[in-house]
């Protein structure tokens, strides 16, 4: 413990740098895909962009929560919930993070949905309302377990959908590493969430989770800039 404190005297500083890198990557992904979306009007690109916009928002609120933890020196959601501003921030964090994961999943599965469901103007707003209700409920009942359970449920659903999309792609004799990257993204996202809502993992584990998450976002950013920035003849 003493060693850890000596190695990491300022975890909040680390947290801020980590959040800044993730927010930066997410916003670059969001804005660098703006042009191809405006040209193609392709729904999958729209959902993909929305996912990273919500990731940026979620990490913004996450760092803001950490900042409040530092200011009020508390580590537990019950004590923390007495602070109105903290509750509001936590609510937006849960909402934004769940929506980010939903949009990323939806960007893969939307084309497999029935036409009336995917063309319906109510599908996305209903998901927003559902996630808002779940986020508000978990805050009101002071139950972090609800959030974690929801995330585990979403994660299992994503893992199954991800695997099914991967199988479909394989049957078409196409290959892409994106499903594996997404799976890692969701795993590390859940670790981030558990760290924030249940217990502090300790600086070393936090550092490993943070570096791995940054690595995943950088890989996605690299792929986005590589594929969104070439013309018809394959030149940069």
């Amino acid at each position: 413990m003493v060693t850890e404190q000596a190695l990491f005297p300022n975890t909040f500083g680390m947290e801020l740098i980590y959040s800044f890198v993730i927010i930066f990557c997410s916003l670059i992904i969001y804005f660098s895909t703006k042009e191809i979306y405006k040209l193609s009007n392709y729904p999958g690109i729209k959902y993909f962009r929305e996912a990273f916009l919500f990731f940026a928002l979620a990490y913004f609120f996450k760092s803001f929560i950490s900042f409040l933890f530092l200011i009020f020196n508390v580590r537990g959601i019950i004590e923390f919930s007495s602070i109105f501003f903290g509750v509001l921030t936590l609510f937006f964090f849960i909402y934004a993070s769940t929506m980010a994961i939903f949009y990323l999943l939806y960007s893969i599965v939307w084309k497999n949905l029935k036409e009336n469901l995917r063309e319906s103007k109510f599908t996305i707003p209903l998901i927003h309302i559902f996630v808002l209700v779940i986020s508000a409920t978990s805050i009101i009942v002071h139950e972090t377990g609800v959030v974690i359970l929801l995330q585990v449920f979403v994660f299992l659903f994503i893992a199954i959908q991800n695997y099914s999309s991967y199988r479909k792609l394989k049957s078409k004799k196409k290959s892409s590493s994106i499903h594996l990257i997404y799976l890692f993204l969701f795993v590390f996202w859940m670790l981030n969430l558990s760290d924030l809502l249940i217990v502090g993992f300790g600086p070393i584990i936090e550092l490993v989770v943070s570096l791995a998450s940054i690595g995943i976002f950088l890989v996605i950013l690299y792929k986005v800039t590589r594929y969104a920035g070439i013309n018809e003849y394959g030149k940069a």
Partner: peptide, 14 residues
């Protein structure tokens, strides 16, 4: 930009 759009959609399985 057509090729870029198609490659992007295919790479991210969108």
């Amino acid at each position: 930009k057509y090729r870029a759009i198609v490659n992007f959609v295919s790479e991210f399985d969108l």
